[in-house]
Design a binder for these strands. Structure first.
Lengths: 354, 354
DNA sequence: CTGAAAGCGCTAACAC
DNA sequence: GTGTTAGCGCTTTCAG
């Protein structure tokens, strides 16, 4: 078969052999230049680059992957939703992957589809990736999967077994604690909680943090209300909470839900923060511009993503070494105006703080 | 070289030859089964599948791509930001691509990096894709690029030349018009505009729509204020607007900016909607739960993404046929409580509507 | 520092 | 319906 050159149909793309010929070197040398390998004289390198430029040559990735066995690509399994938290984490992950010199393959899951994580991972494996990151997975029960590339679980425990597992939390428990403690420090007798869907590990962790903080101060956690992250679900929870005159402080597991809670509270005639304090979670910057500006907890999306990807890449490139220790990102509470001390008449018996 | 089988290191992965041998057929037949080609007897198909299952066989994508010349993959160039609009569109695109049977490669651009679109496209081409989606690009001036796969420009005109170009708007101009007309219909003498960054085509289109609507009613557009999509920039614009007693209606090019505008207006003692009406853009559902619930324009993210991807896939798979006509998604104005007729004292001379 | 030979695992085209 | 023969364009190994 003769390669078409120009003429009729789409001209065949130039191959490394064409570049080699034009530059008067071997194909292997062209390969060296394009892989930034050492031991190529500056002069040869220049000639090769010039020839490639003229020919409009581009490395053929499929051939490279096939020959080398490495894809230089990382797969991301992500929830197909557009909320601020998920989207932010995702953007951070993508940037970290690109900065690490890997390309990105993405497959979104549809929340609720049982077994979707498994099929997403499977798809990625078939596409060819050197590592996988699972972002904020939802609990799907047992997942039977044989995976032989390193996997990073971000914001969740490992939900299936792999040869090399990396986890890097965003520290949801710590953050849930911080939110609750802030309210307690303000003098509230207890803190109510509007949780995220408990199928989410992130939601569970925040709830744990809330419980732990309460317990440490010798309080028992009141029943929590479970939302679905949406403002609408927060609103529904808020209506319920508003009917209970003893609630003076609520920690919502997401900013949007917090907004819904506040809306319901105010509709019911309860002032925020004078009558009841509300803290959110995520620090969507827009909520500095609502009334009242929302007190919230900032998630270290960037730090967690960078850290996680760093570890993942380490696991990919140095399979024999141990993983370096993960650092714990700092907790950041953003105090604005949706929280205040409880109203005087509801004040509990004075007790020493801590 | 002898292939390692089990024993020490990682056992070599099974190849189609292994499956073929086990099933007692040729490699080509295995290939047929895994590509859902016709002309394979049900019995043979079953045998092949069983053998593959037992061996844990998985198609090697790199080899497949190299041999077939088709990647079955679409590249997405996307802005690396987490706002509701961008993230929603993105989720819709991803779903549409997956539903069309393609895998997804993503490269994010960093807003502001001149020439970033070019390098993103280049990277995608090198990774190997059958088509490219450019989502909501920012104007980067001349982009010199030789691209020989079909390209879909979503929410923008084609920003560089390609062999096969597909565009599919989200209809920003129409939508900007709808927002403005709503305000005019309410009786406002004019409508002020807080625009998005004019490097964005989407921002420009909305501004055009605003201008056109005003012009049609014989009004001249007042100067607009340019924001950066953030609530903070909307807040700054709102302060400016608040100092002008003649403004009674403002159309903000994004929901977040609208929230900022409202916040500033109220701080300055102007009531919304009694004194001034505000409409946003995007329909982030959370803004149904702020005070006042925001009137906004819903973007047909899903429709635009599905339509666009459908056309792109058509261009990929039937290069000789003409592109089917794109349908125009319906305009949806979500009227809530941030808009009302102008205050009586500022009422302009009565004029017939339409 | 550079080159030659030998595949990587699959599909294309055609034969049977 | 199914098998055979050639590559796809690169990297690997090993010589020099």
């Amino acid at each position: 078969m003769v390669r078409e050159v120009g003429q009729g149909g789409s001209p065949a793309l130039p191959r490394s052999a064409d570049v080699a010929q034009m530059a008067g070197v071997s194909r292997k040398t062209v390969s060296r230049v394009f892989n930034d390998e050492p031991y190529v004289s500056a002069d040869v390198r220049r000639r090769v680059l010039k020839a490639a430029e003229q020919l409009g040559y581009r490395l053929n990735n499929a051939a490279r992957v096939l020959a080398s066995g490495r894809t230089r690509s990382i797969g991301l399994v992500t929830l197909g939703i557009a909320g601020y938290g998920v989207a932010s984490l995702r953007v951070s992950i993508e940037r970290a992957i690109r900065d690490a010199g890997y390309t990105l393959r993405v497959v979104g899951t549809r929340e609720g589809d049982q077994g979707d994580i498994a099929s997403a991972v499977d798809s990625l494996l078939e596409q060819g990736v050197d590592g996988i990151v699972i972002s904020e997975p939802v609990d799907e029960g047992e997942i039977a999967l044989r995976v032989d590339v390193p996997v990073l679980f971000l914001g969740a425990p490992a939900v299936f077994a792999t040869s090399r597992t990396v986890t890097s939390g965003v520290g949801s428990e710590l953050l849930g604690r911080a939110a609750t403690e802030h309210l307690l420090d303000l003098g509230h007798a207890t803190v109510h909680h509007v949780a995220g869907p408990q199928r989410w590990y992130a939601a569970k962790d925040r709830l744990e943090g809330w419980r732990a903080a309460l317990k440490e101060r010798g309080k028992t956690a009141p029943p929590y209300i479970e939302g679905d992250w949406s403002a609408a679900s927060g609103y529904a929870a808020g209506r319920e909470l508003a009917s209970d005159p003893t609630v003076t402080a609520v920690f919502a597991s997401g900013d949007d839900m917090a907004i819904g809670v506040i809306h319901a509270l105010r509709e019911a005639g309860r002032r925020v923060p004078q009558d009841v304090s509300v803290v959110g979670f995520d620090d969507n910057p827009v909520y500095a511009f609502v009334a009242p500006p929302l007190t919230t907890v900032r998630q270290p999306f960037n730090a967690a993503a960078q850290e996680g990807v760093r570890l993942l890449v380490h696991a990919i490139e140095r399979p024999d070494e141990d993983l370096p220790a993960a650092s714990v990102p700092p907790v950041e509470l953003i105090v604005r105006s949706s929280t205040a001390p409880p109203p005087p008449r509801e004040q509990p018996t004075a007790r020493p703080t801590a």
